[in-house]
């Protein structure tokens, strides 16, 4: 039988778009994103650690592993984890994955191929490997060190150089992340209300119409709020604007991004206005 991997929850990000440390945010009553991430990891790993920045001197109740180098993102976390326990395989996730579920993690662990350097999911948005819900085998350590010394800081680029087993996500949105308050609201609502499949009509205007290549389209979504839908569309249709500069109407009425979606809603996306 395969030895269980160790778990590493990345919590050292700067969360600039959220305006505060994402790991502290409450995802459901009494449970922070950090607590929830660790709880999930513990269920499928031998033991789990919180990866924190080198200059993070807060006291945590949970075991931590501190980054050995600065500003190297997730790769620094994994480097420190291998330095801590070189024999272990590390299942790395991030605390800003509010849609991650236990069944998705179990699916990954079941699919694990120890003869590869890594077992990971394919992104539902661009078909590339997802580095932040991945099992890194001890054999990946040497390549990690090589890439880090070569100046690589992008975890995805590092993962692309590994011999890996890539699998499809059993739940499509499990790895959608959460960078803004609107995304968090979407996550909270989806955890409390569930994510039912809806069909909506999306209308694109101006530059967004050019990005999407059409005036309108039917779109199937499990997003609860229009912010969740925007994130899906932004990635899959390669929309060029940021959410802050876009306004939205539902059924021809201006609405906030937290507005819940209903079956057959018409959602219109407005770039910055430039009349007159």
């Amino acid at each position: 039988m395969k030895k269980k991997p160790y778990g590493l929850l990345l919590a050292g990000g700067k969360s600039t778009r959220m305006g505060r440390d994402k790991a502290d945010l409450m995802i459901v009553e009494g449970l922070s994103m950090r607590d929830r991430g660790l709880e999930l990891l513990r269920a499928v790993t031998e033991k789990s650690y919180l990866a924190i920045a080198g200059d993070d001197h807060r006291n945590y109740d949970d075991p931590t592993i501190q980054d050995l180098r600065e500003n190297a993102g997730p790769m620094a976390g994994l480097e420190s984890a291998f330095s801590h326990s070189p024999e272990a395989a590390w299942l790395v996730t991030a605390c800003d994955l509010p849609f991650l579920t236990l069944s998705t993690l179990e699916y990954l662990v079941d699919a694990r191929d120890t003869t590869c350097d890594a077992t990971c999911f394919t992104s539902r948005f661009d078909g590339k490997p997802e580095p932040l819900c991945t099992i890194y085998e001890p054999s990946s350590r040497a390549i990690l060190e090589r890439e880090l010394s070569g100046g690589v800081r992008c975890a995805r680029r590092f993962l692309s150089t590994l011999a890996r087993k890539e699998i499809k996500l059993p739940e499509l949105s499990a790895l959608d992340n959460c960078n803004r308050p609107e995304d968090l609201e979407e996550a909270r609502l989806s955890l409390s209300h569930g994510r039912s499949l809806k069909s909506v009509l999306v209308e694109y205007c101006g530059v967004l119409r050019e990005d999407a290549g059409c005036h309108s389209e039917e779109f199937q979504t499990r997003s609860v709020t229009v912010a969740g839908l925007w994130e899906e569309l932004r990635m899959s249709r390669r929309l060029s604007l940021e959410i802050d500069s876009v306004k939205v109407a539902i059924n021809d009425e201006f609405r906030s991004w937290n507005q819940p979606l209903a079956e057959e809603d018409k959602v219109t996306l407005f770039p910055p206005f430039a009349g007159g």
Partner: peptide, 22 residues
């Protein structure tokens, strides 16, 4: 909700108001 696309004499074009966001 009105958008303006400018066409310039050099053959290029731009959506006004979106330059900084893109």
């Amino acid at each position: 909700p009105i958008w303006k696309k400018e066409f310039y004499t050099d053959g290029s074009s731009e959506w006004v108001g979106c330059e900084g966001c893109r």
